[in-house]
């Protein structure tokens, strides 16, 4: 082998080993995050975390029951707002829209997806919180609902797109009108994918903190209702992490653990369901 040939194979081995090292390091980061949160968060977790209210500064113990309920309420509202708009918009994109309309809507969706979450918070503040006069659970739901729209649109569109046209033609041949075809044939064929898309969407906004800071705000007690501020898990983690008390840090780890497990469980379940969906777009499975 010539000298340059040897150099070539040394470079070959060296560079590919480096890329392997990069991958190892990236995967290692994930495993470290998981491992640390499980070991540190799970040990900080106790029954009181799920059943008790936060206690005043200086007292040890208490839990985040109000934040768990608050998060559930905000997420429920977000789903009710974001998913119908996103789903119907996705149906329009794939089944009705002409090229120009599709371009405009798709572009708007991508743009909305790229808006930093803190900016969504500002806008919901000026549109909902300011006119209402106070921070509220509803405004938090609106903020997260807006954030859910783009992914709902994209996943609906992609899964509808994966439904073969022969199904539409068959339904039409049997005399079904276009909307009947969509409602009874096309959407049911894609429903598994659309539901998993919604689950992933929910997991994504479940951890959002920034848009809740000045919409749902925070609350040390049970929220007085939909039009009042509420605690949520992500905001509690933030508030407890930056506070100077050890017991609050412990609770922040516990909350982080609960939140992360929720998000990862949804992600892994969705991936599992998707791998069995009958019509799935390429790249999603």
């Amino acid at each position: 082998m010539t000298r340059s040939g040897a150099w070539k194979s040394v470079m070959n081995v060296l560079m590919f080993s480096l890329t392997g090292l990069c991958t190892l390091f990236t995967i290692g980061t994930l495993l470290f995050i998981l491992g640390y949160l499980v070991s540190h968060g799970a040990s900080a977790l106790n029954w009181a975390f799920f059943t008790k209210l936060p206690v005043p500064v200086g007292e040890i113990g208490g839990g985040m029951a109000n934040a768990i309920v608050g998060s559930a309420k905000v997420l429920l509202l977000a789903t009710l707002i974001g998913v119908p708009i996103g789903f119907l918009g996705g149906v329009y994109l794939n089944e009705y829209a002409g090229a120009a309309a599709a371009f405009v809507i798709r572009y708007a969706t991508d743009l909305l997806n790229g808006v930093p979450s803190i900016v969504i918070g500002i806008v919901v503040y000026t549109l909902v919180v300011h006119p209402m006069g106070h921070f509220s659970t509803v405004s938090g739901g609106v903020a997260l609902g807006i954030m859910m729209i783009p992914i709902a649109v994209r996943s609906t569109e992609e899964f509808l797109h994966a439904v073969p046209n022969s199904l539409r033609e068959a339904a039409t041949a049997l005399g079904a009108s276009k909307w009947k075809t969509i409602v009874t044939v096309v959407v049911p064929a894609a429903i598994t994918g659309i539901i998993t898309g919604t689950m992933l969407d929910l997991a994504r906004v479940a951890g959002e903190t920034a848009p809740l800071l000045f919409t749902a705000l925070n609350n040390q007690f049970w929220s007085a209702g939909w039009s009042h501020p509420t605690a949520t898990l992500p905001v509690m983690i933030f508030a407890y992490a930056i506070a100077p008390y050890d017991d609050w840090h412990r609770q922040a780890w516990a909350a982080g653990f609960v939140l992360l497990m929720f998000v990862l469980a949804i992600n892994i379940t969705a991936r599992f369901i998707l791998s069995r969906a009958s019509y799935a777009p390429r790249g999603m499975v």
């Binding site: 119908p84 708009i85 996103g86 789903f87 119907l88 918009g89 149906v91 329009y92 994109l93 089944e95 009705y96 829209a97 309309a101 405009v104 809507i105 708007a108 969706t109 743009l111 909305l112 808006v115 900016v119 969504i120 806008v123 549109l127 807006i146 729209i149 783009p150 649109v153 009108s177 276009k178 909307w179 009947k180 969509i182 409602v183």
Partner: peptide, 23 residues
């Protein structure tokens, strides 16, 4: 039914555009 279905999905799609512009 055809018209309603078309309108409902169109309104949803237009809402997305409106929200983005509104921001």
């Amino acid at each position: 039914g055809e018209d309603v279905a078309y309108l409902v999905t169109l309104v949803a799609a237009a809402t997305i555009f409106l929200i983005t512009s509104l921001i």
